[in-house]
Design a binder for these strands. Structure first.
Lengths: 136, 136
DNA sequence: TATAAGCTTTAAGTTAACTTTAAGGTCAAG
DNA sequence: CTTGACCTTAAAGTTAACTTAAAGCTTATA
């Protein structure tokens, strides 16, 4: 299988696959006589794993630690990665939840003023935003 | 008030304040005889608003549309911004919630295998990850 | 055989929101 | 009068994860 076919199979652009190889996330591909990259099903699996891990929000730089190769995976290290990422996710969830509440309040408040016939000037909006930012 | 004092007051580095000015988010500051930027309380308010809006996840490029200046703010446009950002937040919340579930499953499953005495090889971990990625 | 699709490489560009650097002027204190 | 804190500018660097460009070779098809 050449790179275009692989790209098609996993749903990634060829440029990304080359990029992953360059980053060391994919082993250097075998080549045909003319220098074309040649892949097997292993590459498909590898790319799917990369896609999965990144879909969980892991950075590309985390992956080597996550799929450490060689004898005996370091369990502690893998678990530590998972914990770290879980903590990050929880932190983001808290942040976003807070943001959502504020957005709802802001939207509602602005809607009220609008319906009340206020012809809001930038200055008034500024006041509203300031009010909210201190409410925070 | 000079830039250092302003920076201190709002809790931003001076470089960021200059950057905001350059971006057009802050009006070009008045200068002292020797060319130092000179600020009043207005600048403090403006920066607080910027901080607040960015804390809601708005991009700097969204802010001109959000605090449009001049006569008569475009309510529809402001509301549209708020709706867009709310939609983004909801999307992110969904994504993160999904990620959290997957992370929990992965962590638990890996913990089980570990406690069961499996001396996981990279290959086995790959299997686990693949399994999960198809579960998704 | 020619034309297009597909492959190669290295290097530079993209985006966001800043930060850092370089080279220098100003000001208050001791 | 010198030392250090603070200010100025323009330009380049940072990070992540890619993408795009440039220039050229290969392969399949009509």
């Amino acid at each position: 299988m050449r790179i275009g076919q692989l790209a098609e199979t996993v749903g990634l652009p060829t440029s990304t696959i080359r990029f992953y190889e360059q980053k060391g996330l994919m082993p250097a591909a075998d080549r045909t006589a003319k220098g074309y990259r040649k892949y097997t099903a292993e590459a498909v699996e590898r790319l799917k794993m990369i896609k999965f891990a990144t879909s969980l929000g892991f950075a590309l730089d985390d992956l080597p630690g996550l799929f450490a190769s060689g004898e005996g995976l370091d369990h502690e290290q893998v678990m530590a990665h998972l914990q770290d990422r879980t903590a990050e996710i929880n932190h983001l969830l808290n942040t976003l939840t807070r943001q959502k509440t504020q957005m709802e309040y802001l939207t509602q408040r602005l809607g009220e003023l609008w319906r009340a016939g206020h012809c809001m000037s930038a200055c008034e909006l500024d006041g509203l935003l300031s009010e909210l930012s201190t409410t925070k």
